[in-house]
Amino acid sequence: SHLLLVEPDKIFAMADPTTSDTDDKVLTTLCDLADRELVVLISWAKHIPGFSTLSLGDQMGLLQSAWMEVLILGVVFRSLPYDEGLVYADDLIMEREQCRTVGLLDLYCTLLQLIAKYRKLQLDKEEFVTLKAMALANSDSMNIENIEAIQNLQDILHEALQEYEKNRHLEDPHRGGKLLMTLPLLRQTANKAVQCFRRIMAEGRVTMHKLFLEMLEAKV
């Protein structure tokens, strides 16, 4: 219930209305959206019980490793009601053809696979917010100082998920496990997304904001 309360408000893509819709403009809009979402994501992380008591270094380590997984879970959850469209924001829904023309077809296909998994499970909002926090706590960052504190954070979240499933989804005793077993594909998808945006960054096709660039460069 705490995670539901601290869930951030919707963010809109707000594409620049003064320029025409080129491929690079779509990418610029997407990168700008990601940059603004990152600011929100960092402040959201601080509201996860136990996160703010970690050392600053460990907070940075978790965010630098897991930020794309958290962003992707958001896209995936928003896209659940849509057939074959990626809801990057309510005003930026991308379908196959548009993803193909901007060079994000590969990412689109992986995202659809992930969306299909969660759709089959009928992922609900409580599970979505818990999985997001788990993705952050379970980032497997190489630069963690206090492993015990991170383990404690993971245990608290795991317990919350188990408790929720025990009360709300009695019909399937394996549901919690099924949800956790989606995390490898989430990581794989996030790695693919980071590679895509690094490529776009290297090509110099779009101007990226500093925080997005910083996070892309931090994720080795």
């Binding site: 960092i42 402040s43 600053l56 270094g57 940075m60 965010l63 630098q64 500093k210 910083e214 931090a218």
Partner: peptide, 15 residues
């Protein structure tokens, strides 16, 4: 940490 100064600053922000 110098390389990640925006993240560092945002984490230290109290808001």
């Amino acid at each position: 940490k110098e390389k990640h100064k925006i993240l560092h600053r945002l984490l230290q922000d109290s808001t």
